[in-house]
């Protein structure tokens, strides 16, 4: 099935569950997005750093909240404090909260389905 997505860009998927992370990454890649992955907040910052060296920046971060090492809240606090990163839109996916926390543009409640995932990502990447 072909899914056309306007405005293809790069997405950073931050999720500690490896299967879910891989499933999301596959779906997004199949839809034509460039996907980077990270296991937790700290790993994500590291990815940001590497991309930065290459002069790149993700157009969107899909962020899980409950993660070991550095959770989604701490990651958002870091991003907000960094002028170079604070403009990157963040969409959180979580099972435990019902409203997007401060710093997040939107939220996907787990478990989410493919159309909602693609609509949401496409909305931000199209803008970016």
């Amino acid at each position: 099935m072909e899914i056309s997505v306007p405005g293809v860009g790069s997405v950073l998927v931050v999720e500690d569950d490896a299967d879910l992370r891989a499933a999301v990454a596959d779906i997004l890649e199949d839809a034509g997005f460039e996907v980077h992955v990270a296991e937790n907040g700290q790993d994500a910052l590291h990815v940001f750093g590497e991309l930065g060296h290459q002069g790149e920046r993700p157009g969107l971060v899909l962020l899980d909240l409950m993660m070991p090492v550095m959770d989604g809240f701490a990651f958002m606090a870091h991003v907000r404090a960094d002028p170079g990163l604070s403009q990157v839109p963040i969409v959180v996916f979580s099972a435990s909260v019902r409203e997007p926390p401060e710093g997040a543009r939107a939220m996907l409640r787990k478990p989410f389905e493919i159309p909602l995932l693609l609509d949401t990502v496409a909305g931000f990447c199209a803008q970016g």
Binding site: E15, D19, L20, V24, I27, E113, I114
Partner: peptide
């Protein structure tokens, strides 16, 4: 998390 992975993968 695993449930969502199953769902997403099966749907895909």
């Amino acid at each position: 998390n695993p449930l969502n992975a199953i769902q997403l993968s099966a749907t895909q």
